[in-house]
Design a protein around this nucleic acid. Structure first.
Lengths: 257, 257
DNA sequence: CAGTAGAACTGGCTCAAGCCAGTTGCGTCA
DNA sequence: TGACGCAACTGGCTTGAGCCAGTTCTACTG
């Protein structure tokens, strides 16, 4: 009776289910190569196309990765880089270490980032609203960065700063003009970080994001819209993180108010 | 020259790219039906299989949804239900409204939940560690719930409570024995919530989750591992949320410490 | 012995054809 | 009029065949 129910499911699904079971039970270890599509086809009495379909299902689930010309491999789970709610804590600013670099170091990786571009632009409505600036003029500075752990791109970061604050600070240059980083600049301008507001969503990447984060199929992205709020309750900076979900997590350890 | 580069990309991708462009430019409005696979095949000079492939790509990106026998439709974006860091705030407990119900009401939906099961079990290592209980005995109670907005399952919630705390409180029954809900019970036991620790990840759903959250392809899940910490810094409850990412977001508005 | 050409493998993608299973609407029949 | 059944549509999936493009290793060549 179970068999009957099984039998009416598509063959590609049944093959995927069987292989998933074998992977989860450890019959195929992480990193191991699965039999070739042609061999699997023979084993399951299906045509290669159908096996290909089954493997695509598993790839979408993030269980396997196909490498052209080499084979299909059980995906090795990457350790997560945890971006914490304490990432803006003053304790990091004084030590000179960013939480990202600390996390990378923990995993024996070298963290670094590249500046992709800096521009003074006209904000869209939502952003103008959030930062309380005009949406008619070039009232914000946008900075684009990519972060790497070793050679893997890990997340893309876009920061928007009101021109009123950025003006005359050198934030239009690639090199951040302060020993404590960009938030040092804000403090000098009279904006100490009192609160943060983070809005978190997850979704499948756009084709663009697949390209610049070098994503394999079945890896979603986490998008964080972060706003820094100063001692007067005024927002003075917005940052968007787009992170690959297979290498990143978030962590919030906060008081209940 | 661009054409040459374009031409060496797989046909299914090029079709997907073209359709994506048309959807994003508004030529196909949200909810609208795309031409049938057979018509698209004719238009693009491809075979139906290839168009099917292209549509699967778009489905995986979360752009379209196929309905068997009816057609392929541009996905309508659901408004997000935002689970906030203030969801455990005392202000809600006294008003008798949960943040989930408030969010649903905002969207004109009726929120409700079902108890799937309650069990006294032996925790796994990580959980035993987190709650500081033994992993050798049935030292925790597990409660499983599903939350619905109207008829859509929105998230699945699993709560683990140390038996030492749950004992004698009636938390083994479906009906929570306190007017302020489960956290009222904890307070009576001397555990006031002082801090929360949330660990957030995103990933593709397991086939199980696809089933009970009724997920369409291309929708990731957000997983939140939440720990409640009392006035003495002791963890006394762990909850895992598995949320469909197309209907849910998280929001943390917290002080910088 | 070093270097290389190529065979034999891998997955990627497309075509062509067909059957099946949902959905919808229309026309017929009671 | 109302119910029912069927035709004509929709997507879902599989077979079978074939070409292409990466990778790997071997055996031959200089």
């Amino acid at each position: 009776m179970t068999d009957q129910a099984e039998d009416r499911r598509p063959l590609s699904r049944r093959i995927a289910d069987q292989l998933r079971k074998e992977i989860e039970s450890g019959q195929h270890a992480p990193g191991a190569k699965l039999p070739s599509q042609r061999k699997l086809a023979e084993r399951f009495g299906a045509v290669r196309n159908t096996v290909d379909e089954a493997l695509k299902i598993l790839a979408q689930e993030g269980l396997v990765v196909a490498e052209h010309g080499r084979g299909v491999f059980v995906r090795v789970k990457q350790p997560l880089i945890r971006l914490g709610s304490d990432r803006y804590s003053p304790k990091y600013r004084e030590s000179g270490l960013s939480p990202f670099l600390v996390e990378c170091a923990k995993q024996g990786k070298v963290g670094r980032f590249e500046v992709l571009g800096i521009e003074r632009i006209k904000p869209d409505n939502a952003l103008a609203d959030q930062l309380k600036v005009s949406d008619k003029t070039k009232s914000v500075v946008r900075r684009e960065n990519v972060f790497y752990a070793d050679t893997d791109p890990v997340y893309r970061v876009t920061t928007w700063i009101p021109w009123r604050i950025a003006q005359g600070t050198g934030l239009l240059q690639a090199e951040v003009p302060h020993q404590y980083g960009i938030h040092g600049v804000f403090e000098d301008k009279g904006h100490a970080m009192a609160r943060i507001s983070d809005e978190i969503t997850a979704r499948m990447p756009t084709p663009d994001e697949v390209g610049y984060l070098n994503l394999s199929p079945g890896v979603p992205v986490i998008e964080v819209m972060h706003t820094s709020i100063d001692q007067d309750g005024e927002p003075y900076e917005v940052t968007r993180f787009v992170m690959r979900a297979d290498m990143n997590g978030l962590s919030y350890n906060v008081p209940v108010e």
